[in-house]
Design a binder for these strands. Structure first.
Ligand SMILES: [Zn+2]
Ligand SMILES: [Zn+2]
Ligand SMILES: [Zn+2]
Ligand SMILES: [Zn+2]
Lengths: 133, 133
DNA sequence: CCTGATATGTTATGTTATAACGTAATGCAA
DNA sequence: TTGCATTACGTTATAACATAACATATCAGG
């Protein structure tokens, strides 16, 4: 009964979506290997490439890891906030940030085509805990 | 006559400053090896760690590479614009961007401690060339 | 002199990512 | 239906990036 004709990309997307934390390519690989022991890194990287190109998955550059997009298919850049304590990553839109960013770069004649905005810190939940609620 | 009592960190900083493009840790290593053939990666990474902690050098997360700070010792986050054509990286301050970013994240209860803002695109010079002056 | 802090040396290993080449399945047009 | 392009996948090897673990050296302050 379980899904038969899934591509690897579909399986990889499923794996990433199940997680509430970013997962490395080799983390995905390990999970795939539990069913397909001969799986090679190449296969995983190919799947990740197609998923990131489609926008279903985003790469977190500062973690060398991947998260599922919170709004599959959106067409604007987003901001990732990364909790250093619990490891959660939140994806957020923030048009005002990008408009100021565009104008700062535009003044310098720079034409943007891909934004990496990753903010490391403490999420609200962990902050509470740390403050000793 | 040439510098004698330099630490590796000082030499590494010199190497990075000489370049107008980001350099990888192994790029630095290669250069150091021309004078010290037995140099190990560890040494370079230790130097890079101390330099990035001091703020003399910044790591470009999306390139796994390092650039010299344009304003050694500054105490505010900065924005890196990276030209995909010529490879140049410009470091820029943009307070308005960070204030909007802070407020967007602050509303969500997120406390930032480190910002990664890297914008990939085309620099002014390369844009001109591409447009065929 | 003793001791802690910082810098360095050395060997080994871990982690992330791609190259290069081959095969299979699919869809479509002549 | 055959030919052909495209896309997915398999396989082996290697490149590129980064850290662990432990040893030794140097030097400043007490
Ligand atoms: Zn998204
Ligand atoms: Zn948290
Ligand atoms: Zn700087
Ligand atoms: Zn350029």
């Amino acid at each position: 009964m379980s899904k038969k004709n899934e591509t690897w990309a579909e399986k990889v997307l499923g794996i990433i979506r199940q997680r509430d934390q970013p997962v490395s390519a080799y983390g995905v690989l390990e999970e795939l290997r539990s069913e397909s022991p001969k799986m090679a890194p190449t296969t995983v990287y190919r799947a990740l490439k197609s998923l990131t190109e489609k926008g279903s998955v985003h790469r977190i550059e500062s973690l060398n890891a991947y998260v599922a997009c919170s709004d599959d298919g959106h067409h604007h850049p987003s901001i990732m906030s990364i909790c250093g304590d619990c490891g959660s990553v939140d994806e957020r839109d923030a048009p005002a940030v990008f408009s100021h960013l565009s104008s700062a770069l535009g003044e310098a004649g720079f034409t943007a085509d891909h934004h990496v905005i990753e903010v490391h810190g403490l999420c609200a939940d962990c902050k509470e805990t740390e403050d000793g609620i």
